[in-house]
Amino acid sequence: MQQDARDELKIFSQARGARLSALPGYAYDARGGQGITVYVMDTRINPDHPVSTLNSQFALVSVRLTHLQEFRNMQGSLRWLYLPTEPHIKSDAVGHGTCTTSKVVGPAFGVAKSANIVVVKIQPVVKCLI
């Protein structure tokens, strides 16, 4: 049970008919996705989250939600996949992928805190707000 979970995480363990405000936290299986590999196709992630590399509205949201350290204590493994033409850079200039990945495996905001992550970059064509 994660007692300090935000409502957006609590709803994953919300029973039918239960009031969100009455939930004590986010209840999840002790395995937490251990042994499962999640490929996140987004703008990559910034594992160390240096603010200086972030330059968009998404990044500001991401910084606020991840408190600059979301991936430092992640339990699963982290791998990067690159297209043959891509430079092997471990960063996320946009911040969107950093934020969404934290919602998968981040110790504070992740739904499957022990899953393994593979980071894959795709090119966005439209902006979306979280």
Binding site: I36, T37, Y39, M41, L83, T100, V118, P124, V125
Partner: peptide, 30 residues
């Protein structure tokens, strides 16, 4: 996008993770 799918599919196949892999596309893409 197709190229990205290709490397993901190849990685899953190479590690025989077909029953243990989840692919999330969390960004609108071409």
């Amino acid at each position: 996008m197709i190229d990205a799918w290709g490397i993901v599919a190849a990685d899953i196949a190479s590690k025989d993770m077909r029953a243990k892999a989840v692919v999330l596309i969390t960004l609108s893409s071409e």
